[in-house]
């Protein structure tokens, strides 16, 4: 986790010294108050001082909201301020969870939520399979002694930095009725396909675009794992006359397994929260075919005519519980990897 390259010697140009001077000036401005605090509190209490700003932000924007969220989820009405909201107990949860059959969203009272759950699950399963498969292939390819490895790594990686809106618009442009892809389809003798009108195509492209945008990240993690496998193990396998397929299944994959697990869980955690790309790409449509849980929360709380904060909060508490479990799982896996 800590193998960031050590600092290289900085070229000492005029800009560097200017930056230095600026830095020193900043240091000097903050020095007197901190020195005074140290005199009053002593060295032993200084860590609290350093921790304080971050803790204030954390408390205000993470822990306090987590608490308020629980309050929201057990109160009703449309008021934003918690004390103005009547207590309704588990009503919000009951409303969300009221289903004739959990396998069929249309039997649920809040069918939009359950369609979101079903869509998110579908998306997650497809995404995990595709993401792991393609990033593993990419990592294996990049781990070979190829020319221009840096370039190819960049090819896989650069979409990671693009914003979800940009990614979605790029693909929206390609997939539109008169877009590049339909041009290719018609030139091959096919009919134009309305990708965002067909629910299956919409889901397919949601997954595809997500994989396109994020596989570079997972490729890097897997590539780091591959490169951590000592070369001499491969050399020993070669001396033993091991066939390539057995090298993959008996050496590479078992040794890569911890990284693969981490990737799986990370993909899982991110898939469950998917929103941005899909929202811009399909708007959740056609109908509700690609509407995810997070979009449901956002719409319920902010975009609907009636802002139903209680229902949104209850949904996000449920989502939060799932994420919490997944995070614990991930921590457990990374800890085991470190040990």
């Amino acid at each position: 986790m800590t193998l960031i390259a050590p600092p290289r010697a900085r070229p000492r140009g005029p800009s560097a010294s200017l930056l230095d001077r600026f830095g020193h000036a900043v240091v000097r401005v903050f020095e007197p108050p901190f020195r005074a605090l140290q005199r009053i509190l002593g060295v032993r209490r200084m860590p609290y001082v350093f921790l304080l700003p971050n803790a204030v932000f954390f408390g205000l924007f993470v822990f306090l909201p987590i608490g308020i969220n629980l309050v929201y989820s057990v109160t009703g009405g449309t008021a934003l301020f918690p004390s103005q909201r009547p207590y309704v107990g588990p009503e919000q949860y009951a409303y969300l969870l009221d289903c004739g059959s959990y396998l069929d969203p249309s039997t649920c009272r809040e069918d939009h939520f359950w369609r979101g759950v079903a869509n998110t699950l579908k998306f997650t399963v497809f995404q995990m399979v595709a993401m792991v498969l393609f990033s593993l292939l990419a990592a294996l390819a990049l781990n070979r002694p190829i020319r221009g490895r840096g370039f190819f790594r960049a090819v896989f990686f650069f979409p990671v930095l693009l914003s979800p809106v940009v990614v979605a618009l790029i693909w929206k442009w390609i997939l539109q009725r008169d877009g590049l892809l339909n041009a290719a389809v018609t030139s091959l003798g096919g009919q134009k396909i309305l990708f965002f009108v067909d629910p299956s195509w919409a889901m397919f492209w949601s997954v595809f675009v997500s994989v396109w945008a994020h596989m570079g990240f997972y490729t890097l993690i897997l590539l780091a794992g591959l490169q951590a496998i000592p070369r001499d193990i491969y050399e020993a396998a070669e001396m033993d006359g091991t066939r390539p397929w057995r090298v993959l299944t008996r050496i590479t994959l078992p040794l890569l397994w911890p990284n693969l697990l981490v990737v799986l869980v990370l993909v899982l955690i991110r898939s469950v929260q998917v929103f941005d790309e899909v929202f811009v790409l399909t708007g959740g449509g056609p109908g509700t075919a690609t509407q995810m849980i997070v979009q449901y929360i956002y719409t319920t709380a902010f975009a609907n005519q009636v802002q139903n904060f209680g229902l949104a909060a209850a949904a996000s508490v449920l989502l939060g519980a799932v994420l919490f479990v997944l995070t614990l799982l991930q921590l457990f896996l990374t800890r085991r990897r470190a040990a």
């Binding site: 969220n69 934003l80 929260q273 929360i297 909060a313 939060g320 995070t327 921590l331």
Partner: peptide
Amino acid sequence: LAMLAVIGTLMIPITIVLVPVYLVVTE
């Protein structure tokens, strides 16, 4: 405790606390 708070929230996105953060920001 502080480390636990950091690690515990590593994966909690703002999505989860969208509404209450909105309240805090409004206040």
